[in-house]
Computed example of a mutant assay.
Amino acid sequence: MTSAPSSARSRRPLVIAVAVVGVLALLLVALLWNRGGSEAVPAASVAPSSSAPVAVASPSPTVSAASPSPSPTPSPTPSEPVSPELADCTAVAEGFVPTRFAIPAVGADERVVSLNLDDEGNIAAPPKDEPRTASWWNGGPRPGAEEGQALLSIHTYRNGGALGNELYSDGGPALEAGDVIKLYGDDGQVQCYEFTEALKVWVEDYDPQSDVMIDFDGDPRLAIIICWDFNRSTENWDSRVFFYGTPITPGA
C-alpha cells in the first residue's frame, strides 16, 4: 500500500484551522452587525405602539384684539308702573281739535269750544255764562302738532266762581311744576302736558311781537290764558296770566 506524500499530510491541519477561523470571523461580523443596526435607527422615526396612549396637548387660548369677548347681556329692567294720571295719555302723530280738557290738580274736567277772534279782533274767550269752559284758538297751532303753541282761554269772574279764579290766587298759581294737563280729541287722542310755570304779564307791558301768547314756530307747548287784576274803575282786567305746559311722551 502506498502512503500519502508528507506534504499533503502537513497541509490538512492548516486548512482545518483556516476554516475554523473563517467561521469565527463570520459569527463575529454577524454579532457586530446586529448591534450596530439597532443603534443606527433614529429615535424620531420610531412610530409609537398602537397600544400605548398618546398625550395630545390642548391648544393655548387665542386672544384676538379684533374679537373681544362678548360682555354679558344685562337683564332687562322692569318698566316702572304708569301713573294713573297718565294712563290715558296717547302718542299723538299729528295735531287735532280739542273738545275736552282736564286738570286733575284742581278737579277740572270740562269741555273745549273751538273759536277764532271776537268782534273786536281779539282771541275769543268762552261764552260768558260758562265759567269752566275753555276756548281753543283755532287760528293757531293745534295740540299735538310738531311745533307751535296751542292756546286755550278760560274765564275769570270779577266776583269769583270761575275756573280761572281757582287757577291763580295769593299772587301765584294753584298748580305745581309737574302737574298734568290733558287735552282730548274726538278720535281718542289724549295729548298730555306737564305744567312748567305761570307768567303774569301786565296789559300795558305786553309786546304783540313776543311769543308769550302766540307762537307758530317754537317747540310744541300749551298755553292757558286767564284774565287777572280786575280794575273796577275802568271795568277792565289789567293783567293776563299764562300757564305753560310741555308735552308728555307716553312711556318716557
Score class of each variant (00 low, 15 high):
V15F: 10
D186H: 00
V180F: 00
S6Q: 14
I248L: 07
L24F: 12
A150R: 03
P13E: 09
E204G: 02
L26E: 08
L163D: 05
S169Y: 06
G245E: 07
I16F: 07
I103W: 05
V92W: 03
N236A: 12
P126L: 02
L31D: 14
S10V: 08
G22D: 11
L222R: 04
V21Q: 07
Q189G: 01
E130D: 12
A43I: 13
R100W: 02
P173T: 15
V20R: 03
A174G: 13
V29T: 14
I226W: 02
P247D: 07
D129N: 14
P74Y: 09
A198C: 04
D187I: 05
V18W: 10
C192E: 10
S75H: 05
G164Y: 02
L167K: 06
T90E: 07
R132Q: 14
R11K: 12
G251S: 08
I225C: 11
S153I: 11
A102W: 04
S50D: 13
S50C: 00
G171N: 10
A174P: 04
I224H: 01
V82T: 15
V97M: 11
Y157W: 13
V41H: 03
V46F: 05
P59H: 09
I225R: 11
D207L: 07
W33V: 14
I248S: 00
E146L: 09
S6G: 03
E194R: 13
F195K: 05
L27Q: 07
R240L: 06
R12W: 11
A44Q: 12
T196K: 12
R221E: 15
A105W: 01
P127A: 13
A108M: 07
A55G: 09
Y206G: 02
G36H: 10
S239T: 13
N159D: 15
Q209A: 15
P84M: 08
A52L: 12
V54G: 00
N122T: 12
F230T: 01
P42E: 10
M213C: 03
R232A: 13
A162D: 11
P13H: 04
V112D: 01
E194M: 08
